[in-house]
Simulated assay, not measured.
Amino acid sequence: MDIELKKDIYEEIRGLLKSARENIVSTINSTMAKTYFLIGKRIVEEEQNGEKRAEYGKKLIKELSKKLTKEFGKGFSERNLEQMRKFYLAYSIPQTVSAEFRLSWSHYLILMRMENLDERNFYEIEAIENNWSLRELRRQIDSALYERLVLSRDKEKVKSLALKGQIIEKPEDVVKDPYILEFLGLEEQNSYSENRLETEIINNLEKFLLELGKGFTFVGRQVRFTFDEKHFRVDLVFYNRLLKCFVLIDLKIGEVTHQDLGQMQMYVNYYDRYVKLDDENKTIGIIICRDKNDTLVKMTLPEDNQQIFASRYMTVLPSKEEFKKIVEGK
């Protein structure tokens, strides 16, 4: 006789199976990456002990490729063996993060191309901690996440990015400038409304949460609050679990004004006084705008401001050259 399963027992067992599968995949990925590292190590050692000519290394890899392919099948082409060799050379540096390889071989193929060791270590840490897929890793690198975080940090904190990844301890740690929103598909739109921008963000909420960063959960869209018979709406409301506070976001398709900043200050004050719990931290307000005047923002906000921020957004992924210009102009 069939019985109706209680939802909680099904979800619990489902969770156990999913976790087991993820652990198996993770273990396989780690084992393969470590094996390829050791293969690369052995090739380099043989090259160093053999003849000091480049031709020897080429012949060595060619012969290995023939024999390994014959016995183990695909995956041991000359190109792949050369990649393993480069993998060892890149990750045998003492300052590298990996003591154990916890990402897939495909992840490391991307990471090992980075010449900046601090940048590479940062992306490796973040990919491990946030369980980034290959697509997510590529997207974060293409959107220059490391460079954007470096912009708002002093030398000491920049170094910590390479050692610990992104640490969220205070409000400014979650703010990026600019936000890269290329996934909204608005790059060919000559004009669009703030409502359209907001709608596309909601339609791509998972990607937007990834762009926001660590610890964010979605609370609501056009969240209304009322006092003195007047109604107000916050475009987007999030909660950050790491900072234990609400994060309010207003979207502006033009340049931010002092009125916009004043309005956000009022939103934040309301949440601090009537919404947040006693054990929660002060609310953060972020105005994400097409453009801003940094001097106007500084003059409008208090000198000790730690709650209100204005950040630009871009709907087209800039090239590395374009991004350098953005960085140099800040």
Rank of each mutant, 00 (worst) to 15 (best):
I249H: 04
L317G: 05
R85L: 11
S143Q: 13
L251C: 03
Y179S: 03
K176N: 08
I180C: 07
E11D: 06
E124R: 01
V237S: 01
A33F: 03
I28A: 04
I180A: 04
L117I: 14
R120G: 08
G329I: 05
N203V: 02
K7D: 13
H107D: 03
L109R: 09
Y56C: 12
S77N: 08
N29L: 01
N281D: 11
L137A: 01
N190W: 05
Y239K: 06
V256H: 09
N281A: 08
E188G: 07
K176I: 05
I9R: 07
V219D: 08
N269L: 08
W132Q: 07
N240L: 06
S92T: 08
V237T: 06
Y239F: 12
S65Y: 06
L16P: 00
I286H: 10
L64F: 09
K86R: 14
E51R: 15
T315I: 15
E78P: 07
Y123P: 01
L209Y: 00
A54R: 15
V150K: 14
V223A: 02
N195C: 06
N49Q: 15
I9G: 01
Y108G: 00
I284V: 10
I28G: 00
S26W: 05
E206F: 01
T35L: 12
Y274H: 09
A99I: 14
D278S: 15
R273Q: 15
W105K: 01
P302N: 07
W105G: 01
L68A: 07
E11W: 04
S143N: 13
K6R: 13
Y36H: 07
V158L: 06
D142S: 11
T295Y: 15
W132N: 06
R224Q: 14
D260R: 00
E200N: 05
D294K: 11
E4C: 08
I110P: 00
N190F: 08
D8M: 09
K244R: 14
K58Q: 15
L5Y: 06
R273C: 12
A99V: 14
Y146A: 02
A33L: 00
D250L: 02
S65W: 03
K330D: 15
I13R: 14
D8F: 10
E124L: 04
T31V: 12
K325V: 14
Q259C: 05
I110D: 06
S104T: 00
E71M: 09
E115N: 09
R312F: 15
S98A: 12
A90H: 08
E198V: 01
E11T: 03
D228F: 13
C245F: 04
L212C: 02
T69C: 04
R135T: 12
N269T: 06
F216M: 05
D173E: 09
I168S: 08
E124C: 00
M32D: 10
E198L: 09
F309R: 02
H231E: 05
I286F: 11
L197P: 01
K207F: 11
R241V: 13
E198Q: 10
Y36S: 08
K176G: 05
L296F: 13
T300S: 05
Q222T: 07
T69K: 07
